[in-house]
Nucleic acid binder design. Structure first.
Lengths: 342, 342
DNA sequence: TAGTTTCATGCAATCGATTACATCGCTGCA
DNA sequence: TGCAGCGATGTAATCGATTGCATGAAACTA
């Protein structure tokens, strides 16, 4: 960073002022085609690169967006991140990532991103942040625009990018009913999570529509993880009166559930059908391959990123940060793990 | 970002100069305990937050590190990223991520990170970058320090954080031999990849040590992905004379291999034993659960991050960027997918 | 007691790009 | 011919924190 050419050097090489060089880069149509060419050549020759810190300081911006991920180690998010970086690639904004559940002081550091000039915008994938963290954005111009993706807050009017979770759950239940199942259970995500609530609601609604039993002892607790799926397998085994099909609120849980049943000698789908949710990559290759509700994860990330960019630009131009919310479609993918009951 | 308090406001509130405020924050022992307390209180009251752009400009730094990931959508990397953000959390550096294989212009944008004042350091997880991209760092002070993690370049003396890939492959082969297998194949990663080369080398060495056959038709081509594992299953099925065990260079390939064999009615480990590499989370829950070589992914990320931080600091203090390289240990985890041959 | 260190603090230059405003030369119209 | 209008460019202030140097007071030394 020491001997790097600066805009002054380029200006000297091109025989123009620094203002012209700056304009040739950031507002090409404000300089004549001739000088622009000269400036670009000078940039080429000197090997000049803008200093982002200087630019950001002057423009009063941060130059990046932050993605708040509840748990980076969870592969569910990797494809969403991929969609985000894809959409951001040409924008000139950096993509920073932060794990909201990671010690030390996760909460404190998030606040730092929120109030701060560290990010021009946020994509929040974790709606279970401490209440006060997000409400810190009360005073509208004290924080950058926020887009929620995947998860959201019912009480919060900010724009979101989600999928139709309720419909997804209904598709799953109807699929099992179509196969002939009448005894259907549901393995849920973490309590309080909006996805858990919405998917469970959809499952209940579909069961009711179909006139099927909604039995509390067939609604198993989980937390979206593989391990909780395995734990649910034990709960299922412990029942006297078991459902013949289980709709799991995540593929990870479905895999954990099936894997553990397999250890106990219970075959899927012979003895119990399983439907997952997410369509993670392994679902198609699992044994048995997993029937699931596909959600377009990369597209979610991409959409959220574009929406955020729009908000950032809009916020700069006028003040009206409108927040239409996108709901992306889901799709049933039928595979081996679901079959008619014996 | 408009009406935010600046250091001047804090200085006024505390009745000191901006220099003192700055020092109270960045060099606490250069101000007296009393004034420090006063300044901190003033910061609290005004709600001041440093402007990173200004700080970075003045300090001639970028304030962040970049992680170059070959494919963000690949969950293998999520845990490494997690380790990196964990180690970086308290450092004050942002963690930026960039996908090196992502259109448009991946190559061009990487160069931007390399030469540029966008990052104070890089963690590179992709050693297959175009030759000239990395060699752009010839002139030592024209680029930030780089640490390679997982993958590395044989020709490059820069510091690396890796695992003992050769030993891992040997563990896998020996494990299969211990079970009684004498006909052992190997499903490889993408050609030219250093991990592919090293693991295949370890596998060959172990086979040789054990006096077992090294048959070219039992070395299958792959690319670490699930799909290539499934493709290898067809290659295996097509052989007249099949190995009774296959060591796969990634868990994803092992899962794809097993999943596809299962579709074709071939049971694992009954008809063929399989050992993977990585110990991704699903390995323990797969059907059958996967015997594999565990590598400490989060630790790799964490170690790389700390090493990079050390290089950044060192580079600022004196110029000698030494690059000891860490090799982290691997471990065999025996599960159901490997058993004695029939 | 005079001279020397040490410590805490203030002053003001500085990092490098952007941009409001001023300037200059043309064109076009009355 | 004269003046408004416009486009291209230059001048210089500005973004906000950091830090080299200077200052003054206190502590220490001989």
């Amino acid at each position: 960073m020491k001997g790097f050419p600066k805009i002054r050097d380029v200006a000297a090489a091109a025989g123009v002022s620094t203002a012209t060089v700056s304009r040739a880069l950031s507002a090409p149509d404000r300089v004549s085609a001739d000088t622009r060419a000269i400036v670009l050549k000078a940039i080429e020759e000197t090997g000049y690169r803008v200093n982002h810190a200087a630019r950001n300081l002057r423009r009063r911006q941060a130059g990046g967006i932050v993605v708040l991920v509840p748990n980076l180690a969870n592969p569910f998010f990797s494809q969403i991140l991929s969609g985000i970086t894809f959409a951001m690639a040409t924008s000139g904004y950096n993509v920073l990532i932060a794990d909201t559940r990671q010690a030390p002081n996760a909460e404190h550091r998030i606040l730092d991103y929120l109030h701060n000039n560290r990010a021009d915008g946020l994509i929040v994938l974790d709606a279970n942040l401490p209440e006060d963290v997000l409400s810190a954005g009360d005073t509208p111009n004290h924080h950058p625009p926020i887009v929620f993706a995947c998860e959201w807050l019912d009480t919060d009017p900010r724009p979101t990018v989600t999928i139709d979770n309720e419909e997804g759950a209904k598709l799953a239940i109807r699929h099992l009913a179509d196969l002939g199942h009448t005894r259907i259970g549901h393995l849920m995500g973490p309590p309080d999570n909006i996805l858990t609530i919405t998917r469970a609601k959809g499952a209940r609604a579909a069961l009711a529509e179909l006139g099927l039993a909604i039995r509390p002892d067939w609604f198993f607790d989980g937390d979206f993880s593989l391990a909780s799926g395995a734990a649910a397998a034990h709960a299922w085994l412990a029942l006297n009166d078991r459902p013949t099909a289980v709709f799991c609120a995540s593929d990870a849980m479905a895999c954990g559930f099936i894997g553990e049943l397999h250890h106990k000698g219970v075959r899927v789908p012979d003895e119990v059908s399983v439907v997952g949710f997410d369509d993670i990559e392994i679902a198609a290759h699992f044994v048995p391959s997993l029937t699931t509700i596909a959600q377009p994860r990369a597209l979610i990330g991409e959409t959220a990123a574009r929406k955020l960019l729009a908000l950032i630009t809009e916020g700069r131009e006028n003040g009206s940060a409108t927040g239409a919310s996108d709901v992306l479609p889901v799709q049933l993918v039928a595979r081996e793990s679901s079959a008619p009951p014996r």
